[in-house]
């Protein structure tokens, strides 16, 4: 049983990992600091571990998709991230891809559900 749980956990992780960058990019049209990003994602039901997010933000910055700026005006210094022009471009392309993927997945799963239902009905008869 615990083995199954482990497999499931890994699969879930993999599934979420694929959408992580897109989720993050989607939120950074306007500048946001790290923790605010965690919260806004969580509010929308997208959980992300902080120890994954922070390194990810740095990596995206290094790749030129995000840019960061320290703001020292408030009660404490905060680092704000936002998308660059290249980030916008990548985000738009990824978004298109995601739409295609999710539509197809939807179709796939729906079809499967119908088939299963049909089989169940036949079984009852």
């Amino acid at each position: 049983m615990s083995e199954k749980k482990e497999i499931m956990e890994n699969l879930l992780l993999e599934l979420r990992r694929g959408t992580l960058i897109l989720s993050v990019l989607s939120q950074l049209h306007l500048p946001k600091y790290g923790y605010a990003l965690v919260q806004s994602l969580e509010e929308k039901g997208v959980g992300i571990e902080t120890n994954t997010l922070y390194p990810l933000l740095r990596r995206l910055e290094k790749q030129g998709l995000l840019v960061s700026e320290w703001e020292t005006g408030g009660s404490k210094p905060r680092k704000y991230y936002r998308r660059t022009e290249a980030g916008d471009e990548v985000y738009e392309k990824l978004k298109e891809q995601w739409k295609g993927i999710s539509q197809n997945m939807e179709k796939l799963l729906e079809e499967n559900e119908k088939l299963q239902k049909g089989a169940d009905d036949n079984g009852k008869k």
Binding site: Y33, G34, T50, Y54, W70, P77, R78, K79
Partner: peptide, 27 residues
């Protein structure tokens, strides 16, 4: 270091959690 200081203090404020709980969450 600056990033983590920011993050940890944010987490403590917003989640009203103790330091130990916050650090446990960070892993």
């Amino acid at each position: 270091r600056l990033e983590l200081e920011e993050l940890i203090s944010d987490m403590m404020e917003q989640e009203e959690a103790g330091m130990e709980a916050v650090l446990t969450k960070l892993g």
